[in-house]
C-alpha cells in the first residue's frame, strides 16, 4: 500500500459550503476538487499552469487549481464553475458563453467562465483589451476567441442593464 503521507487539516469553504478534510500535503487543489469532492467541472488540460482549464476563484481571485496545493487553502473561499448556476439557471456569464457560442467543445469553458467571473467582479465594465488581458491565461482551441470576447461583453452589458454586480 501507499506509504502514510504527511497530512494537513484543510478547513475552507467550497462554493459557499464549509469543507473540513484531512488532505495529503502534496494534493493539488485541482485533484482535491475533482477527486475528493467530485466537482469535475474544473478541468485539467495540461501538465501544470499552461492552459487555464482549471481556473477557480480563491478569495475572489482567479487561480490555477493545478498549481495550488489544497493544504494551502486553509481558511480560504474557493469557488468553482458549479457555484455559478443558481437553482439550475445560468449566470449572466454562462448565458453569454452559451448564447454567443463562446463554448464549442466546452473543455476550456469552466476555466474561461471563472476567469471572466474574476474579471467582472473587479472590473464590471471592461473594454476589449481588458477582456483579453483578463482571459490571457486561458487557452481555447476551438473558437479563435472572437465569440469568447463577445460572450464576456454581452454578460457585462446584461449585468449593467440589470443593475446587478457580481
Amino acid at each position: 500500500m501507499a506509504e502514510i503521507k504527511n497530512k494537513t487539516n484543510l478547513s475552507c469553504t467550497v462554493n459557499g459550503r464549509a469543507s473540513d478534510n484531512i488532505v495529503s500535503d502534496s494534493l493539488l487543489l485541482a485533484d482535491f476538487l475533482r477527486e475528493t469532492l467530485g466537482l469535475t467541472g474544473t478541468k485539467i488540460g495540461c501538465d501544470g499552469g499552461e492552459c487555464g482549464c482549471c481556473t477557480v476563484l480563491i478569495d475572489n481571485a482567479p487561480q490555477h487549481a493545478c498549481l495550488t496545493l489544497a493544504a494551502k487553502c486553509n481558511g480560504k473561499a474557493i469557488e468553482t464553475i458549479e457555484s455559478l448556476s443558481e437553482e439550475s439557471r445560468l449566470s449572466a456569464i454562462q448565458r453569454g458563453f452559451n448564447e454567443k457560442l463562446g463554448a464549442q467543445c466546452g473543455f476550456c469553458t469552466p476555466g474561461m467562465v471563472m476567469a471572466a467571473e474574476g474579471l467582472l467582479r473587479t472590473n464590471p465594465d471592461p473594454n476589449e483589451q481588458e477582456i483579453r488581458a483578463g482571459l490571457a491565461s486561458n487557452i481555447c482551441r476551438c473558437t479563435g476567441y472572437v465569440k469568447i470576447i463577445e460572450a464576456v461583453q454581452s454578460a457585462a452589458d446584461e449585468l449593467k442593464m440589470s443593475g446587478q454586480a457580481l
Binding site: R34, E35, G38, L39, T40, G41, T42, K43, I44, T80, I81, E82, L84, S85, L90, Q94, R95, F97, N98, E99, L101, G102, A103, Q104, C105, G106, F107, T109, P110, V113
Partner: peptide, 21 residues
C-alpha cells in the same frame, strides 16, 4: 441557434472521459 448541449458545457455539468470516477 445556440448549442443544444451548451448549458451542460457552460455550467460544468458536462462529463468528459476523465470525469468518470
Amino acid at each position: 441557434k445556440s448549442l443544444v448541449d451548451g448549458p451542460e458545457k457552460v455550467s460544468g455539468k458536462a462529463k468528459y472521459s476523465s470525469d468518470f470516477m
